[in-house]
Amino acid sequence: METTAVKKYTFKDFTSDQEVRWCPGCDDYVVLRSMQKALPDMGIAKEDAVFISGIGCSSRFPYYMDTYGMHSIHGRAPGIASGVKLANPKLSVWVMTGDGDSMAIGGNHFIHVLRRNIDLNIVMFNNEIYGLTKGQFSPTSLIGQKTKSSPYGNTQPPFSPGELALGANARFFARIGGNNPKAMTQIFIDAHKFKGTSLVEVLQNCVIFNDGCYSNVTDKDVKEDKQIYLEHGKPMIFGKESDKGLVLNGLKLEVVTIGENGITQEDLLVHNAKEEDKTLHQMLVRLKYPLATGIIRSFEDVTL
């Protein structure tokens, strides 16, 4: 809830006295600091922010925030967060979850919270592995991935969180690399402002059990060529030289190069995150090259 008389905070106001216990080098630190930096710009009073988590590495998050928080039980944070929000709609309520917490044990709550569209925010740390239990495959692990519980390679096909979320009628979906704090901070602010359930998938590297799982798209030297950062109202353009773009060819997205075959910037698709019809959003979510990041969908709908 926006208020004008809110005092100006800094990220320190949201930092608790607890020592952070994630592994050195973990992207979770980036998420934590981005959130602590985003909160002062959300225009809310400190006591009105509530962080609810389930179980897993990511779910330690609330302990490190000097706000109201609950570290709950595995997979159930969406239910608890829904209760908090329904009890007191003026609170800014955040669910901090992981790929296993949200899509394995908590899969049912995950789809229903998206369906209902209560004004909540969900940050999903997707590292494609179970970290806290020391390295088993998760519902987003790739086929063939060798983990402690799949020594001969994972045989279970993964979920794509974005596709699952849009299938459950998510109105707000954003995806961001775990090494991109600046954009992440802004996405958190936008997620807060969005009326309805917003889901932010963080591509989070697990330095111990799945190191480098996103390096081919998120590493500094490749990210501009391998990712497209979507912004509402702007042409779908990417690449180090900003010379690549997306067009629609039949029912498929196609990568084109500006200046080749007579293609100009005017030919590129313009991102409309606010479109109700999610066909194009789904295509963007599925796209492997370039990987779509930023706010892919942000359709304002009826909220509970």
């Binding site: 509530v50 609810i52 109201y68 609950m70 709950s72 039980i73 159930r76 239910g79 608890i80 967060a81 829904s82 209760g83 908090v84 929000k85 329904l86 009890a87 007191n88 609170l91 709550h109």
Partner: peptide
């Protein structure tokens, strides 16, 4: 769990 959240709040 929704009841627990409501109680917390």
């Amino acid at each position: 769990t929704s009841a627990i959240g409501a109680s917390f709040a």
